[in-house]
Amino acid sequence: MTPLLYAGAGIALFSLGLWGFLVQAALLRKLIAFNIMGSGVFHLLIAIAERGEQPPDPVPHALVLTGIVVAVSATALALAMGRQLGEEQEHE
Protein backbone atom coordinates (compact mmCIF):
# COMPACT_ATOMS: atom_id res chain seq x y z
CA MET A 1 0.00 0.00 0.00
CA THR A 2 2.73 2.38 0.99
CA PRO A 3 4.54 2.19 -2.36
CA LEU A 4 1.31 2.90 -4.15
CA LEU A 5 0.72 5.89 -1.95
CA TYR A 6 4.24 7.14 -2.67
CA ALA A 7 3.80 6.53 -6.36
CA GLY A 8 0.46 8.31 -6.39
CA ALA A 9 1.94 11.21 -4.52
CA GLY A 10 4.81 11.27 -6.99
CA ILE A 11 2.45 11.46 -9.96
CA ALA A 12 0.43 14.13 -8.24
CA LEU A 13 3.56 16.12 -7.51
CA PHE A 14 4.68 15.80 -11.09
CA SER A 15 1.32 16.99 -12.39
CA LEU A 16 1.24 19.87 -9.96
CA GLY A 17 4.73 20.88 -10.96
CA LEU A 18 3.88 20.60 -14.57
CA TRP A 19 0.90 22.87 -14.11
CA GLY A 20 3.06 25.42 -12.41
CA PHE A 21 5.83 25.11 -14.96
CA LEU A 22 3.48 25.78 -17.83
CA VAL A 23 1.38 28.50 -16.27
CA GLN A 24 3.75 30.52 -14.14
CA ALA A 25 5.58 33.20 -16.03
CA ALA A 26 8.29 34.16 -13.59
CA LEU A 27 11.56 32.32 -13.91
CA LEU A 28 11.91 31.61 -10.23
CA ARG A 29 8.46 30.11 -10.01
CA LYS A 30 9.11 28.04 -13.06
CA LEU A 31 12.26 26.67 -11.52
CA ILE A 32 10.48 25.82 -8.31
CA ALA A 33 7.80 24.09 -10.32
CA PHE A 34 10.50 22.22 -12.18
CA ASN A 35 11.99 21.01 -8.96
CA ILE A 36 8.58 19.90 -7.76
CA MET A 37 8.17 17.90 -10.95
CA GLY A 38 11.56 16.39 -10.36
CA SER A 39 10.61 15.48 -6.83
CA GLY A 40 7.54 13.76 -8.20
CA VAL A 41 9.62 11.56 -10.44
CA PHE A 42 12.07 10.81 -7.63
CA HIS A 43 9.15 9.86 -5.41
CA LEU A 44 8.02 7.42 -7.96
CA LEU A 45 11.47 5.94 -8.30
CA ILE A 46 11.86 5.52 -4.60
CA ALA A 47 8.44 3.95 -4.42
CA ILE A 48 9.33 1.26 -6.91
CA ALA A 49 12.54 0.42 -5.11
CA GLU A 50 10.51 -1.31 -2.45
CA ARG A 51 10.79 -5.08 -2.78
CA GLY A 52 8.87 -6.35 0.23
CA GLU A 53 11.08 -8.57 2.36
CA GLN A 54 14.21 -8.14 0.27
CA PRO A 55 16.48 -5.16 0.65
CA PRO A 56 15.30 -2.34 -1.61
CA ASP A 57 16.45 -2.20 -5.21
CA PRO A 58 19.62 -0.10 -5.39
CA VAL A 59 19.19 0.96 -8.98
CA PRO A 60 16.41 3.53 -8.44
CA HIS A 61 18.43 5.01 -5.64
CA ALA A 62 21.32 5.52 -7.94
CA LEU A 63 18.98 7.04 -10.44
CA VAL A 64 17.51 9.43 -7.94
CA LEU A 65 20.92 10.53 -6.74
CA THR A 66 22.07 11.24 -10.26
CA GLY A 67 18.77 12.92 -11.01
CA ILE A 68 19.16 15.25 -8.09
CA VAL A 69 22.63 16.23 -9.21
CA VAL A 70 21.37 16.97 -12.66
CA ALA A 71 18.40 18.92 -11.39
CA VAL A 72 20.55 21.02 -9.15
CA SER A 73 23.00 21.90 -11.86
CA ALA A 74 20.18 22.70 -14.24
CA THR A 75 18.57 24.96 -11.70
CA ALA A 76 21.87 26.65 -11.11
CA LEU A 77 22.45 27.27 -14.78
CA ALA A 78 18.97 28.60 -15.29
CA LEU A 79 19.36 30.92 -12.34
CA ALA A 80 22.68 32.16 -13.62
CA MET A 81 21.26 32.86 -17.02
CA GLY A 82 18.23 34.52 -15.54
CA ARG A 83 20.45 36.76 -13.47
CA GLN A 84 22.57 37.72 -16.38
CA LEU A 85 19.46 38.48 -18.38
CA GLY A 86 18.24 40.68 -15.58
CA GLU A 87 21.54 42.56 -15.51
CA GLU A 88 21.57 43.04 -19.26
CA GLN A 89 18.06 44.39 -19.14
CA GLU A 90 19.04 46.80 -16.41
CA HIS A 91 21.85 48.08 -18.59
CA GLU A 92 19.49 48.86 -21.41
Binding site: F34, V41, Q84
Partner: peptide, 19 residues
Protein backbone atom coordinates in the same frame (compact mmCIF):
# COMPACT_ATOMS: atom_id res chain seq x y z
CA UNK B 1 19.53 39.84 -24.15
CA UNK B 2 17.87 38.10 -27.11
CA UNK B 3 20.30 35.24 -26.94
CA UNK B 4 19.89 34.92 -23.19
CA UNK B 5 16.13 35.00 -23.34
CA UNK B 6 15.94 32.54 -26.19
CA UNK B 7 18.36 30.12 -24.65
CA UNK B 8 16.79 30.36 -21.26
CA UNK B 9 13.55 29.30 -22.89
CA UNK B 10 15.46 26.55 -24.63
CA UNK B 11 16.93 25.41 -21.35
CA UNK B 12 13.55 25.29 -19.64
CA UNK B 13 11.94 23.47 -22.54
CA UNK B 14 14.81 21.04 -22.46
CA UNK B 15 14.35 20.48 -18.74
CA UNK B 16 10.67 19.81 -19.22
CA UNK B 17 11.54 17.36 -21.94
CA UNK B 18 14.14 15.55 -19.87
CA UNK B 19 11.88 15.18 -16.90
Amino acid sequence: PEALRANLRYLLIGLLGSL
